[in-house]
Design a binder for these strands. Structure first.
Length: 269
DNA sequence: AAATTCTCCTGAAGGC
DNA sequence: TGCCTTCAGGAGAATT
């Protein structure tokens, strides 16, 4: 389940393989993703080079000089860089083929997307209303404090709302709230500015560490068998319900909040 | 406007 | 061995 650090690692991993490479072919095996893959994708890509690659939230943007491919990995999406002619397996939905290599998009659950836009991608409907990047200066305690006033929803839902801040998925919301000592079910609007200072610090720290770890454990994106870009991070609470709290030894509670697994320490948070 | 619920999908894991 | 159920969840759409 790719979160922002995995997407960042994926972007960094594939960039050297595809930048300035000429697109010679596009193969769409199954267009049924979150939204259908546009029929004209091959037509708009072939014959152009990938000039730049960026990340915005959990979206990866490929610019070929005429427009942008908007990629999202959804729940189970993966990108591999493979030699051309590599036989496709089940769930290998799209190939963007270059002279010697091929970018392959694989997604068993098909929650991801592969779209195309000729407008400035920041104005695309999917990106236009996204919140700030969590690692940018725009994301600070004052911002969260202001946006949260009078909001009664839980702090966890608030953090996971991509219109508030991008890239904080379920795993890192759990982790950051634990590190900041804040109960997930607290109303966002009732949290003090001082506690938001703490929370922002931990969100940035946990994401930064994960990205660093992703960099050091980066697998070979050209391998078809590995798990490129994905890595195990030390998780304090996520997936540890019923086990001992690392800070105090108390048994971690696991509950469902908005259909999402939520783990916390009732003593520390 | 805000908050909640529904929905897409398939592989993994657990129960019997 | 195999069939069944449940769970995992990003985020837009629908609904209250």
């Amino acid at each position: 389940m790719p979160e922002l650090p995995e997407v960042e690692t994926t972007q960094r991993g594939i960039a050297p393989h595809i930048l300035n490479q000429l697109i010679t072919k596009v193969i769409i095996r199954d267009k049924r993703l979150r939204w259908p893959i546009p029929d004209n994708l091959a037509h708009v890509l072939i014959g152009h080079k990938i000039e730049s690659i960026q990340r915005r939230g959990k979206y990866i943007l490929l610019n070929n000089g005429h427009g942008h491919v908007i990629l999202h990995l959804g729940m189970s999406g993966r990108i591999h860089i493979l030699p051309t002619q590599t036989p496709a397996k089940k769930h290998d939905h799209v190939d963007i083929v270059f002279n010697e290599k091929c970018l392959r998009f694989t997604d068993p659950r098909r929650f991801g997307c592969v779209l195309w836009t000729t407008e400035d991608p920041q104005y695309h409907p999917l990106l236009a209303n996204l919140g700030p990047e969590p690692l940018s200066d725009a994301f600070d305690a004052g911002y969260l404090y202001a946006r949260s006033r009078k909001r009664t929803l839980t702090i966890k839902s608030f953090l996971m709302n991509s219109h508030i801040v991008v890239g904080v998925g379920n795993i890192y919301a759990n982790e950051a709230l634990f590190l900041a000592g804040i109960r997930p079910q607290l109303a966002a609007g009732k949290i003090s500015r001082a506690r938001y200072v703490d929370l922002v610090f931990h969100i940035k720290q946990v994401l930064t560490k994960a990205i660093e770890l992703g960099g050091t454990t980066l697998r070979d994106f050209t391998a078809s068998d590995g798990k490129p870009g994905y890595f195990q991070q030390q998780l304090y609470v996520y997936g540890r319900g019923g086990q001992a709290c690392i800070k105090c030894g108390n048994t971690l509670k696991e509950i469902r909040m908005h259909q999402r697994s939520t783990v916390y320490c009732a003593r520390c948070q």
